[in-house]
Write a protein that binds this DNA or RNA. Structure first.
Lengths: 183, 183
DNA sequence: CGAATTTGCGACATTCATGTCGCATTCTAT
DNA sequence: ATAGAATGCGACATGAATGTCGCAAATTCG
């Protein structure tokens, strides 16, 4: 098998990141596969997009695993380090799977939405833990803080796309801006 | 004339805010006009989208006028108040014309892009003035700060869409988060 | 090596959005 | 009241994307 199903997903994500409205023919070409073959793997366009959505959510979950989010929530320790690690790790994921954040079908599929809510709920738990520990101010709604992270990731993405900032500066800028603001 | 051209633009914006991929037929219906009539006003879909883009940019310009951005830049006075006014005013505009921020054609049209760059340049000037005045920290690239505003507006939009925060709280949340961060 | 699976390829039908047109009707302004 | 302009309406042509199929070639695996 020259091109595996997993490779198709990867390359489709890459291409859709640059051309969010690409057709199946375009995606097939970018994946190095004939259009018919693409349809053999994913009967419909929707099926493909959903598969890409799952891939993105897997990467998201992996971030939670790698930074030890569960442990931090269970023990209530190292919440600050965990928060910082989460933010930085999000940059990588968002860069790779960013299109999933804006893709409409991903926000429609009930199972994907539920999965996203689960993942988001854990991050909100972390935010609340940080607020209790005095790491984050407690006068902001946790969900607003969570959405702030999302918005700042959009800013990172946009800044990189336009060449406003260097790739290596983004973790610092994100952390600084998120935690201490701009004034 | 039951429905003016301007009304069509207004209603099209409203509808596209909720259904960014709406067809011309859908837009016509939302505007209370026959599809053929819509095409008499705007020969192609692109023409319509561009018109909506101009409307959004007019509103943006009006914000600059109303807060006295020019005067602040010229005199170098009241930069802090002007910055705050700009942020709060952006909430309104973004809510109304937000779809233009993500609409692809708007980001492609050369004249609209140039106009957007002009407007953005003035805001960056304000940011730089604030940095010189000690209102904003000077160790963040002005363009990053500008993109941060954009990202936080996305967060506001998303928070309202999901019902995470009350409409009346958004100015405070935006200002607080932007200026002082979350910690 | 040989059978089985997979892929490339091109053709086809279908659906959907787009853009145009002619005609009857309605509205508007003088 | 009436001429001119704009609208509603339905029909039409066109093009693009989607999804399916059969067959030949290539790849994989036993």
């Amino acid at each position: 098998m020259a091109v595996t199903r997993e490779q198709i997903v990867t390359r489709a994500i890459e291409h859709l990141n640059q051309a969010p409205a690409a057709s199946m023919a375009e995606i097939a070409q970018a994946a190095g596969v004939h259009r018919a073959t693409l349809h053999r793997h994913f009967a419909t366009r929707e099926e493909l997009i959903i598969a890409l959505g799952w891939r993105a959510h897997e990467a998201w979950q992996r971030v939670h695993d790698e930074i030890g989010l569960d442990t931090a929530l269970r023990t209530g320790e190292r919440v600050e380090e965990t928060l910082h690690a989460l933010l930085v790790a999000h940059i990588e994921v968002a860069e790779e799977h960013g299109f999933a954040l804006t893709e409409h079908l991903v926000g429609i599929n009930p199972e994907l939405v539920r999965r996203a809510e689960e993942l988001e709920a854990r991050e909100i738990e972390l935010i609340e833990a940080c607020q209790r520990a005095g790491v984050l101010r407690a006068d902001l709604p946790p969900r607003w803080v969570s959405n702030t992270v999302y918005g700042l990731l959009v800013a990172v993405r946009e800044s990189l796309r336009r060449g406003d900032v260097a790739r290596r500066d983004t973790p610092r800028l994100l952390l600084e801006t998120f935690l201490r603001g701009t004034s």
